[in-house]
């Protein structure tokens, strides 16, 4: 076993990340979630508090299931998941990844005013239409055409081989199936 592999195996002996139990453990995670929410566009402190609380609840739930892993990573994942779930609910989607992605791009692109309030559950106004109105149509509907490689018959390509094949065929040694010089794909 090379030293590179044994070095990597050393990681297995490292102590596991701190358990999710104390307030001190939670503080950096909360801090990171706040930062992330801010980057998502959640500026209002009331909205932030609501959403942070929900994310932390989900992280704690994962901890009780023993699925905590890296707390910071789980917190970011859960924030993301919270957003996706809200979008699915808001738009009545059926977990279509393309539609969820488009909706996420719409809100994070700043095209839907007031979405953070709605996400935090502090607004009753539906944003379904506003989100659907933002279309990210990067390409039009498919309108395919067939485009096959066209043969180009090169002159003198494998001339010797072709001549030999012809002679052999003439002598009755080989069949008539020998390849032509046509260049296909």
């Amino acid at each position: 076993m090379g030293s590179g592999v044994s070095d990597r195996l050393d990681v297995l002996d490292e102590p596991a990340p701190a358990a999710w139990s104390t307030t001190e453990d939670r503080a950096p995670v909360e801090q990171r979630v706040r930062l992330y929410l801010n980057a998502l566009g959640v500026q209002d402190s009331q909205e932030t508090e609501v959403l942070v609380r929900r994310v932390i609840e989900r992280v704690e739930f994962r901890a009780t299931l023993g699925q905590l892993g890296e707390p910071l990573e789980v917190a970011i994942e859960e924030t993301h998941r919270l957003l996706d779930r809200w979008l699915v609910a808001e738009l009545g989607l059926e977990s279509d990844p393309d539609q969820i992605s488009a909706a996420r791009a719409a809100v994070l692109g700043g095209h839907v005013p007031g979405w953070t309030r709605r996400w935090a559950g502090l607004s009753e106004d539906s944003l379904t239409e506003s989100i659907r109105a933002v279309r990210f149509q990067a390409v039009p509907e498919h309108a395919p055409l067939t485009m096959e490689p066209n043969p180009i018959r090169l002159c003198c390509h494998r001339l010797v081989r072709r001549l030999a094949a012809r002679v052999l065929r003439w002598l009755g040694i080989r069949g008539r199936h020998h390849a032509s010089a046509e260049v296909q794909a």
Partner: peptide
Amino acid sequence: LHTRLWAAPTLEAPPPPANG
């Protein structure tokens, strides 16, 4: 990639809000 970058133990100065 996105998650790992945001979950890094030491975070580089975060970007401004997405729709800011």
